[in-house]
Design a binder for these strands. Structure first.
Lengths: 121, 121
DNA sequence: ATTTGACGCAACCAGCTGGTTGCCATAAAG
DNA sequence: CTTTATGGCAACCAGCTGGTTGCGTCAAAT
């Protein structure tokens, strides 16, 4: 519903476009909240690489960092932004399917001058 | 439903993660099927850049290339893979929430008095 | 036949990105 | 106090990526 849903969706798309990131999220989903070091035990990349990914995921809101005891930081999944992205996708698909074609035809009849794509270059 | 839905979803995520690509799709949605040269008239990048994006979009199945008369190639939107990605997202969100609920219940039963979920942040 | 417009391909470039190693700080354990 | 993880930078690297320019070509219009 918010007008910047596209911004959130973009971050989610960027986040989910990377296999390592999806693996991290899958790890968090299966094991529950975990630290970067924990996740490094299950994945073929270093702890630092995972930490970078977690930072990006936190920025996208897909994960929240909660500092625990003994200087450890646990990351927990957060599905809210993903639902935003999902609804963004749903709206996009709905718009594409014919509905906008009808709208376009109407516009073509009502505003004859504007919309023709003109070739430059 | 297909097991490679994740592969399709990944391609859709990669495609939609780029603003130029989203602009191209928006242009196709508003103007209907168009050629790379047409789209170059509405966007601040060159025809060749758009052609590359269109190739990627076609690979992802978000767009189909239909050769027309006079050597022109028009591209038309295709929402099918986006719906796959959308359902992938929905399933993921549902999975996450389910897992987290189950984990919470489990912890509540096993550790009765302990860990009142203290949300930091 | 020549011009014109549009496509495709290839080379090239700058900047981002995923990943690594190395180092330092801190906090618990010995 | 020394050891032993553990987390947080920072530098660095290779490869991808978004974008450009340039060129060859083909179909239609002149």
């Amino acid at each position: 519903m918010p007008r910047d849903a596209e911004a959130i969706a973009e971050q989610v798309f960027v986040a989910l476009a990377d296999p390592s990131r999806r693996a991290i999220l899958a790890g968090l989903a299966s094991q529950g909240p975990a630290t970067a070091t924990d996740l490094a035990g299950c994945l073929p990349i270093t702890r630092q690489a995972i930490a970078k990914h977690l930072a990006l995921l936190a920025e996208a809101g897909l994960v929240t960092a909660e500092p625990g005891e003994r200087r450890r930081v646990r990351y927990r999944l957060c599905s809210a932004p993903m639902q935003v992205a999902q609804q963004f996708l749903a709206a996009l698909a709905r718009d594409w399917d014919g509905r906008l074609d009808a709208l376009k035809d109407h516009l073509d009849r009502v505003l004859p001058g504007l919309p023709q794509p003109h070739q430059t270059q």
